[in-house]
Amino acid sequence: MEYFIELFFSGLTRGSIYALIALGYTMVYGIIQLINFAHGEIYMIGAFTALIVTGVLTYYGWPHLAIILIAAVLAIFYSAAYGWTMERIAYKPLRDAPRLSALISAIGASLFLQNYVLLAQTSDFLPFPSLISDFAFLDPVSNLFGTTDFLIYTTTGVVMALLTFLIKFTRVGKAMRATAQDRHMAMLVGIDVNRIISITFIIGSATAAIGGVLIASHVGQINFFIGFIAGIKAFVAAVLGGIGSLPGAVLGSLVLGWTEAFFTGYVSSDYEDVCAFVILVIILIFRPSGLLGRSGVQKV
């Protein structure tokens, strides 16, 4: 039973991290129906920025708390900037092109960003400094989950609540929903669609960066390739939950996280990644609209 609970919490951690990446995926997909292949790379860039900033500031002997805050803020900022720039270059000129073209362009952007980091930095795994000291009030449950896990759960919850609020109750959120429903109609009623899409990319990328910083401090090491597999799994999670739906992304991520945790715990850890892909294939066969998604009719 204890083993079960342990796996439960490790699955929860995994799922929460997937959720932070999946939220951005699902938002972008909801608005322009594009699988943003490079989303995982944005997350990786967030982690790298945080690592670099912490490295530099530690070198100059700044206090821990300041380092954490500055690193997190800069990581979010830079990821958002990369997301925005990428959208301008690789996706915007293709807005009216066939979806296959946009998807290939996204693969290109992903390939470029990966190799850019590889060449500018290194291909080795870099240890990520752990700066967050353990919270005292978590001591009684420290055998179940650590401080970083706790931070991951709370951050995911807060980010999801904020995003839901943003989309449901603000003016920008309303514009986003309108753009997602019908881009041309949204344009006709005076919504600056290009601006809304840019904002979506910025928010999605910022969310991914939060995920990047958290997972980097959770796992303790990063390299240029972490974005790829995380991106794919977050995509699986987004599809599982119903792509385009925010609560769906979180639910899907948690289901995926638990499935993986129990699978590796009870069956075999060699086939961990296979498990995610098999779930994806099964979901797409039996319920392509996902757990919480609405099944739509393909329009001509």
Binding site: I232, V236, V274, L284, P288
Partner: peptide, 25 residues
Amino acid sequence: FPVLRLRGDYLAIVTLGFGEIIRLV
């Protein structure tokens, strides 16, 4: 057989997943 019903981008992801499954196995 399973992917016949899927459209463009889903198809891309499933084929990617299938490719990775074979390599991992």
